[in-house]
Design a protein around this nucleic acid. Sequence first.
DNA 1: TTAAGATAGTCTCACTTGCAACTATCTAAA
DNA 2: TTTAGATAGTTGCAAGTGAGACTATCTTAA
Lengths: 179, 179
Amino acid sequence: MPKAFSSEVGTGSRQENASKKGSKLDLFRFVPFRLNRLAAEASAALSGEYQERYGLDIPEWRVLATLGFRSEACSAQYVAHCTRTHKSTISRAVTALLRRQLIERVENEDDRREYRLRMTRKGKALYEELIPRLLRKEQEILSCLSAQERKDFALMLGKIEKSLDLVQTSKEASKTAGY
Amino acid sequence: MPKAFSSEVGTGSRQENASKKGSKLDLFRFVPFRLNRLAAEASAALSGEYQERYGLDIPEWRVLATLGFRSEACSAQYVAHCTRTHKSTISRAVTALLRRQLIERVENEDDRREYRLRMTRKGKALYEELIPRLLRKEQEILSCLSAQERKDFALMLGKIEKSLDLVQTSKEASKTAGY
DNA sequence: TTAAGATAGTCTCACTTGCAACTATCTAAA
DNA sequence: TTTAGATAGTTGCAAGTGAGACTATCTTAA
């Protein structure tokens, strides 16, 4: 048995850790770090569903999620905007999904640079099968919170998203830079 | 001016989007997706400080944060555990920090497989300069929440972390698998 | 002692992804 | 028109990272 790591880190309050030279930073209380870890862990928890079970990676799953939620077909660019994923990543995901015949694309008569994407019957079937599993997983992850807490949590996420300028607005197209 | 993307996505309630065939999933209401986006956005907001200003990447910053918070020197393995970062990633970060003379390492007499890492004077100076900037950024990000909300938010993050088995405990060493 | 298994740290390989260049197309202004 | 600039989508390239092999060392039990 190896010696256990002490649980010292993360137990002191930030105030206690102020020294003459300056304040210290406890990673375990630092929200950006916690968000990173949490996101990674949540992704890992979900990947069992879409990755192992259906052979989808995250970008592919995001494309399906966007197409599945919308009623009409939409462009790759739109998917990239919605999911905040780089267009080259979306392009590769689209190629993979086309190859597996989970989605199809039709030329846009109005603008021949872009294609309209939509799920095939096969893609829809996979989507219908996958969604409930993912929603269940999400509920599992949130099962530690009461109904009220979940509501509050979602509300606060929304506020932070807004403050980070993440909210989807109709003005979205004007701030494309950096996606 | 390009036509703006509609803001349709993310505005409907999940109930409204249930069809005969099954429920849909709104990415904008799906917590794992939101956490991913939020984490990416928060990281980007911080990277201006440690990346552009001090030439540190995330793993390097995590090593410094761990060493800076602890009073005694500690091993690379310990840093990997604390930060939930793969040991090979930490190894590379340590190499880079050694080269820049921001940290130094001394042999551990008790166990010559591992090294004790600690910040140099130069590393401490950088740390002392960087920390307040990062804490300020964190506060900026959270500025949209009231004091009570921040407290609640931290509490809920803690609950979810716990439910995802992320909490740092003295038993930590026994569940190394998967890092 | 000796041997088997565990652990710390490094390194190679493969994979993912962002960046930026590129083609084709559209838009707007001269 | 014509031309300059913007945009959709694809692709090559480079950087970052996890998996796992590998070396050196430690531990434990025969």
